[in-house]
Design a protein around this nucleic acid. Structure first.
Lengths: 155, 155
DNA sequence: ATTTTATTGATAATAGTTTTCATTTTCATT
DNA sequence: AATGAAAATGAAAACTATTATCAATAAAAT
């Protein structure tokens, strides 16, 4: 799946502009996220990165994800499993953008893209108004439907 | 703030139907939630309930909230603070329904109701299609905009 | 009344995340 | 290229929200 990844150069600029450094472990973590749109957890990211960069510590993964969230490059999800999950933010109207159906029982997550167009058009409008009204710089949004999935309805 | 609270009787029926009992601590917890639309945390709920019902243990609060979420009466939020927050679910088109703006830095939460009508109309349509397509029983939805608030933009 | 089943509360255990701190790396400036 | 300042890293310890355990209690069914 193709993501609208920024080039290393412009990423570098972006980090520098905010006073941070685009180091090897950070690049590796971003690269893993770019290959993966299944909202991986810290542990999953850690293991993936570890293959290419065995010296990495899990603390760095935590810190990097935190940084990426604050830079507005990554979104942090909590689907009720007791651990966070992460995903690179595409342009909200770009390829790859999706919303979620979440089963409150088994925590299964379904990505859907139906209606995304209509949702995005509405949200763009809402976002403009809200950011002006509250002087709030909106970086991304999430939409989630909670309920019971096919498998858990019966049992 | 008025919530569309079910009466004790019908609540009782609802619990019974699912094989649960509407006990004193559970009633107290629900009552606290009904008075409070500021998404309280477990600890906050615990302290509130404790005033009226001092013998309650925090474990019961955890368990009850978990139950209420599974029954579809309460929504569990995670705003990135490392702890959950809860809120009674109103009818999605009813009074009190709101969406959120969340500051990724200071975790401040702004409830907004602007555009709720349009959002709700669209979501009702989406919800119908999704629940059929995925055979998923949707109980509620959330919409959240993430970004940087007024105060944190400058610093 | 009695039996069964669900619920409760205290405690202990778990797991995800954060803090601390000494070491290393990166970048800007010689 | 060498140096110094600032930022980033990794290991370990500390923290904290949440969950599991288990004996005691309360509620419903018989």
């Amino acid at each position: 799946m193709k993501k609208t990844i920024v080039t290393n150069d412009s990423l570098y600029q972006y980090f520098a502009k905010h006073g941070y450094r685009l180091t090897a472990p950070r690049k590796e973590i971003i690269s893993i996220l770019a290959q993966n749109n299944n909202h991986p957890s810290i542990e999953e990211i850690y293991f993936s990165v570890h293959k290419k960069y065995p010296s990495i510590g899990i603390t760095t993964v935590y810190r990097t994800l935190d940084l990426l969230v604050n830079l507005g490059l990554v979104h942090k999800f909590d689907f009720g499993e007791g651990k966070a999950r992460f995903e690179l933010i595409d342009h909200p109207d770009g390829i790859g953008h999706h919303h979620h159906l979440i089963c409150v029982e088994c925590k299964k997550i379904i990505n859907y893209t139906d209606f995304i167009d209509k949702e995005v058009v509405l949200f763009k409008k809402i976002q403009n108004r809200l950011s002006k009204k509250y002087n709030f710089e909106i970086k991304n949004h999430i939409v989630e439907f909670y309920g019971t999935c096919e498998d858990c309805k019966t049992s």
